[in-house]
Design a binder for these strands. Structure first.
Lengths: 218, 218, 218, 218
DNA sequence: TATGAATGAGCATTCATTCAT
DNA sequence: CATGAATGAATGCTCATTCAT
């Protein structure tokens, strides 16, 4: 918050990575609080404790590019966290393995969103319209795809093609449900990733299991 | 598109309600297409075939108020549609009735979103940040609450208090899942409300049924 | 200088042509005094007694376009003045006619430049570099061409092609000489168009006459 | 273009005069190509193969001062070249001598402009407005004065005061004519200094001769 | 000395909003 | 009532200039 000052003077030189982090942190914060359009580059600069030219130099050269980088960073953070937690694909037949992987993934998802309240969950809504719609769409699609992959491994129905076709909308619904829970969590609900995860699994797991066995309705 | 003109070529006087509808229709269209912030009041006026002062007079006096009214109207449209379809609260014990009510509600939900692509689903994302965040939040909360009510009737566990506590996050998850499916639908998936509904029900119904029987995991 | 006010209020509505003239007058003045690049649109607005948006609305929408229009207007003013004064092409053989036409043209040239000190002679130098170089070049070329035409009528040497080839550089030199005199006039020399004209004619007329008779040096 | 580097790869220390030349060369080049205002100090530094602080240190400390020095240097170059070519003042009565001196001066003038296209002829237009107007004016005045001196020697009319009064505007016109021809030359005309010189002399010499004999119009 | 890094200050442009007609 | 015309207030972005190393 306070501009870094050296012992002898006012301006300290910092390595570019630190500056970029400084700028992106400030931008994520400001964009999340007041919204991308209502935020001015002055706001970002002030939040970062830097001058505006620094924001431009280390933020990509334009307000839009700055948002793009914020989105990318937060999406990466989330995706990496979830992917690592979910781990490698389970061997076919390992029933519980998939459920556990989903569980671990969801925990990581909620944990990340809870820890970085200003990050992805707020940011990505800012840009669904306008020039960055594609960027956001791709970022979110990566997450959905990752989940779809996970589900596809779990839904080896008679027709593999059908399975993939089924897995994507299911993943979309699942991610949407997680987002809905995260919203609820943010506006008063529990913030415990564990509880959120179990709730969501309780809601969908048996449905997924049934779909896996290809008996959509008994 | 062309403003109605009288025989003399001057604009015909219209009753205020029609004027307001004209303005809101134009605003919803423009805001949805180019986004709230990128849209100018000139754009709205042109789309409405009116002068800018008319837009101010009949649109609430400010751009923000105009968006607020758009959001309210579209949220009402959606909520009304879903509530009517779901019908009155079912008597406790009517098993299938609840499922059917949920089914009818979801169908109405997807049908409305599909039919009015420019409406709620686009609008509410525009305003989740900034001054109207609360407005949007409240509008969405009404929907979630309505669903929670529906689910609460279905989850008459031993402790009614717990039940309500459980119903709200479940409703949040369910609405989120529906939004996720709607997004997927909008970006290439099927647009058939029937199919979307059945998919979502297949995913969550057994889970809901289990939760109702209070056996969260066998 | 003072913003036009109506009896009852602050802002008076004016026909577009008057507004445009008001804006261009101010722009020519400001650009001439401090130079195009050092002048701000605020300066122009203040000079015009208008708000900046008015300058944009009636000045072409950008600073560059504003300069373009200034240049065009001043060039037109000068060219029209000179062309009218020089009159129609003289019949071949009318010796004195050409000299008189040249004389009348030069008088108009100096008179215009003297009367509108802030106009062309200052403006056109502002833009010889940059995007408007072509615009300026064309404007100046029209003047040189007009003079070349006049001279060509006067130099009906044995080979018409050679004549035209000769007339252009001579016109360029003549216009340059006039500009040089105008500069001198502006920085302390006489401002009498009559005197300037006679001086220039005395300098070049016999040379032109000799060239006409095709005896470049006796 | 590439800065001279020592064996260790660090830039070699150069004597200040060479540094200044390096900086001025780069500045003249850049200012001529993109124009003073559109050129940035970064551009100059890059063109010079130096860092920006070096440009400030050896270029006078400010962008404006840098331009001033460029203008001075190029004006000196031109004036020196012309003055040397024209040689010492001729003794009164030496008829042809003056014509020859004028001829040699013009040749040098055109030759210099043609050889250094990036120099004076481009530079001095950049600065005729704004803070450096005076500087440019003075530089140009030196040239005009030198020519006026030359002409004054040639016009020893009855009244010496009148003569000087006459010589200055004539010189202004002559220099203007030369500039006009140089412009024409730069935009497609011949670049041969010899041809340009003879053309201009043919245009003005007899006029000058007549004026010398004090018979302004036969 | 020579420089990469940092900033203060300015400027073109846009728009929501409001009079005067 | 309805509107064309006008403006105040912002905001994104750049660049000459200067430290701290």
């Amino acid at each position: 918050m306070v501009p870094p000052t050296s012992a002898t003077g006012r301006r300290r030189r910092l390595p570019p990575e630190q500056r970029e982090r400084q700028v992106l942190d400030a931008a994520v914060r400001v964009f999340s609080r007041v919204g991308f359009h209502d935020a001015s580059m002055d706001d970002v600069a002030e939040q970062a404790g830097l001058s505006k030219p620094m924001v431009y130099t280390h933020g990509g050269g334009s307000k839009e590019e700055l948002l793009r980088r914020c989105i990318r960073r937060e999406a990466d953070r989330l995706l990496t966290s979830v992917a690592q937690a979910a781990g490698a694909r389970a061997a076919p037949g390992e029933d519980r393995a998939t459920e556990d992987r989903l569980r671990r993934g969801l925990r990581a998802y909620f944990a990340t969103l809870t820890t970085h309240r200003d990050g992805w969950s707020v940011l990505y809504r800012q840009a669904r319209t306008g020039t960055l719609a594609d960027e956001v769409h791709r970022a979110r699609a990566r997450i959905v795809d990752r989940v779809a992959e996970l589900l596809a491994a779990e839904l080896p129905g008679p027709d593999p093609a059908d399975t993939r076709t089924l897995a994507t909308p299911l993943a979309a619904a699942l991610v949407g449900a997680a987002e809905g829970l995260a919203d609820w969590s943010a506006s008063g609900g529990t913030e415990d990733p564990e509880a959120l995860t179990e709730l969501l699994l309780a809601l969908v797991w048996t449905g997924l299991a049934r779909l896996r066995d290809h008996r959509p309705e008994p």
